[in-house]
């Protein structure tokens, strides 16, 4: 494991912690897209099918459990928690996330490294993760006052993706036969989706203003 990969995993972990902190202590999920959170829960469920059959390291298993547990509990909080669900901007969060799932599944059936159930599901999770942030970005654009925690959550998620790309560059030069087109292309697409957000995030940070995305 290299430093980029570790830093990427840690930013990912922090992003989840920031979101849980907001939901758990402030009891609010204002500005958070349930659609995106449901997609992430599906992403992790599809990707970590091998959690008990393919042991890599204790670190990997524990992290997988954390991502699975946190994504499903966030969805639960937003849907069913008596107080939290009241702050959910249902009328603003209108992205048709089901329309993302089917194309990703079809693409995974067509383009994969091996046509087995686990491999197709794994590829599906990569494609779906690439676009899972879209409902959240649309919701951010519609939110007048993006609170700091929500802004930081999306920023940390974007940073995690950028660090993973550095990790692949590093692995490409240090490990033999490290060529994984499917992972790289979907990862690159995913990171590019954050470009616009990053621009406005740094602008607001530089000018010391509240984050606001133009429609």
């Amino acid at each position: 494991m290299n430093i980029f990969r570790l830093a990427g995993d840690m930013t990912h972990l922090f992003s989840v912690l920031v979101l849980l902190l907001k939901i758990h202590t402030i009891k609010s999920c204002a500005g958070v897209s349930l659609k995106t959170q449901e997609l992430y829960a599906l992403v992790f469920a599809a990707r970590y099918l091998d959690i008990f059959t393919n042991y890599i390291s204790l670190y990997n298993t524990v992290m997988k459990l954390i991502f699975l547990g946190s994504s499903f509990s966030i969805v639960w909080y937003m849907r069913y928690h008596k107080i939290v669900r009241r702050s959910y901007d249902k009328d603003q969060d209108t992205f048709r996330h089901y329309f993302l799932i089917l194309p990703c599944l079809l693409l995974a059936l067509l383009i994969n490294e091996k046509f087995t159930f686990k491999e197709v599901m794994w590829t599906f999770s990569l494609y779906l993760e690439a676009v899972a942030i879209l409902p959240q970005l649309v919701l951010l654009q519609r939110t007048r006052n993006i609170d700091n925690l929500t802004g930081q959550y999306v920023f940390l998620l974007g940073a995690y993706r950028a660090l993973y790309i550095l990790n692949w560059v590093y692995r490409y030069f240090t490990e033999p036969h490290f060529v994984h087109w499917i992972t790289w292309v979907s990862g690159l697409v995913q990171t590019l989706l954050y470009a616009d957000f990053f621009y406005y995030y740094f602008q607001s940070w530089k000018n010391n203003q509240k984050l606001h995305l133009p429609a």
């Binding site: 990969r5 995993d9 990912h12 091998d50 393919n54 890599i56 390291s57 990997n60 992290m63 997988k64 991502f67 794994w122 993973y164 990790n167 490990e175 036969h177 490290f178 994984h180 992972t183």
Partner: peptide, 10 residues
């Protein structure tokens, strides 16, 4: 092995 290489990521 090669197959494990990419599946060792999260």
């Amino acid at each position: 092995p090669l197959e494990q290489q990419i599946h060792d990521e999260l």
